[in-house]
Design a protein around this nucleic acid. Sequence first.
RNA 1: CUUAUUGAAUCG
Length: 232
Amino acid sequence: QFSWNIMLSILSQSGHLDRAEKFFTGMPRRDVASWTAMLVAYAKSNRIDRAKLLFDQMPERNTVSWNAMICAFARSGDFERALGLFRAMDLEGARPDRVTFVAILDACGQSLAMELGMWIHAELLAAGFQGEITISTALVEMYGRLGKIEDARRAFDRATGIGGAGGDAVLWAAMLAAYAINHSPSQAREFFENTPPRLRSSVSWTTMVTAYARAGDLHAARQLFDKIPRKN
RNA sequence: CUUAUUGAAUCG
């Protein structure tokens, strides 16, 4: 069973939707993973409608299947349906996990659904997902997009811990982006300078450079660009 | 840490 599923995911990841489809229908046995893999294959080819059809036809659904479908909607920009599915999970007794929450927080941020976002935030605290770094990053990103920079910062501070130097490069880049979106480049720059080099990535650099460029300060952009270490 | 789903910028 494992090997069939592996074969199926190889086919879909290499973009052979038609072959994946044939393989899927020809499989001697199909478990939840097989159905979900096929669903994702459709979604990646932008056949969201087909994906949803498969989702509805699945003999059983687990959290991963729900996540896959929610992510598919979110990726296609259909945040309404993504959020709708999230609500429907409860009714079918599927429990959201950290992947669900990250996807939903992202959808909230992109659709500027502040009310719901804050509600979700409370939900995940209650569910005990507080400490997950991907969750923290998603919170920072969402609040940043919503213009709630203080809330973004609060989530960030909790994630970086006592010394304030915890977390990873993704978290720090997300916080930087939150500043860059909501404040002047110099404000963002201050945060950038206070970022431990270990937690700076090429993403931090490009975020900072484009912040200057967007503000029209091409000189500062160029100057910073020239300071980027070779490896980045 | 390889059977399915998830976190950051730019450009393509």
